[in-house]
């Protein structure tokens, strides 16, 4: 649920990276955070990670980033990841509360295609828990780990992943490598732009105002 504050002239938007365990959600956020720290003069908030001792996400990773102004409004993006491991279902569900945009980070390893599918079904049921569906949010896919040498570890062809996850929705997707950074910024730029566009349309068309 995006928040538009007419006094402070701010728009707050929540983007969540979802996907199976070890698909590269945290690595995406770390790459974006590092790039912003390197490239921008302005102060970037710390990346908060609530993880286990084994460096697996326990609850979420989070950092807010200002995107500048649009129509006189300061845009503030909140980037979150969810824990991918199946056992963290309760915390994963909580992170989705109020989501505006979703990046589904799918693992390209052939052996992880069932996990991708399971995680995607889980996403739909968790959205339902918050009385939302995929049509209420902006969604894109990222086919991660495309940099892996196929001679070493078999990868699923992109067409196969599209067929498995994106044949009905036909939303934007990017082949990517979160470790090398390939298409990581492209992914976040695209989802931000599309989500902001949708939020502005919805707030103009559907003025749900807080206050009597």
């Amino acid at each position: 649920m995006a928040i538009v504050n007419l006094k402070d002239k701010t728009i707050q938007i929540k983007i969540v990276y979802y996907g199976p365990g070890r698909s590269g959600k945290t690595t995406n956020l770390e790459f974006i955070h590092n790039k912003l720290q390197q490239n921008r003069n302005q102060q970037i908030s710390n990346l908060v990670s609530i993880d286990t001792k084994g460096d697996r996400t326990l609850f979420f990773d989070f950092f807010p980033v200002s995107l500048g102004k649009i129509n006189g409004f300061d845009l503030k993006l909140k980037l979150y990841t969810t824990p991918g491991q199946v056992k963290y279902e309760a915390t994963r569900r909580l992170v989705l509360k109020g989501v505006d945009g979703l990046v589904f980070v799918a693992d390209s390893l052939t052996s992880r295609q069932d996990a991708n599918l399971e995680s995607f079904e889980n996403l739909k049921s968790n959205l339902l828990y918050h009385k939302q569906s995929l049509s209420d949010v902006k969604l894109i896919f990222q086919w991660n780990k495309r940099d892996i040498d196929e001679k070493m570890i078999p990868l699923s062809p992109i067409e196969e992943m599209e067929r498995l996850l994106n044949s009905e929705l036909k939303v934007q997707s990017f082949p990517a490598s979160a470790t090398s950074g390939m298409n990581v910024l492209k992914t976040v730029n695209y989802i931000s732009k599309e989500t902001v566009k949708s939020v502005i349309e919805k707030t103009i068309l559907n003025k749900h105002k807080m206050g009597n």
Partner: peptide
């Protein structure tokens, strides 16, 4: 559902 918070609401709260 998105929420638009009016200026006077922010001031009052």
């Amino acid at each position: 559902m998105n929420t638009v918070i009016r200026e006077d609401t922010v001031t009052k709260v």
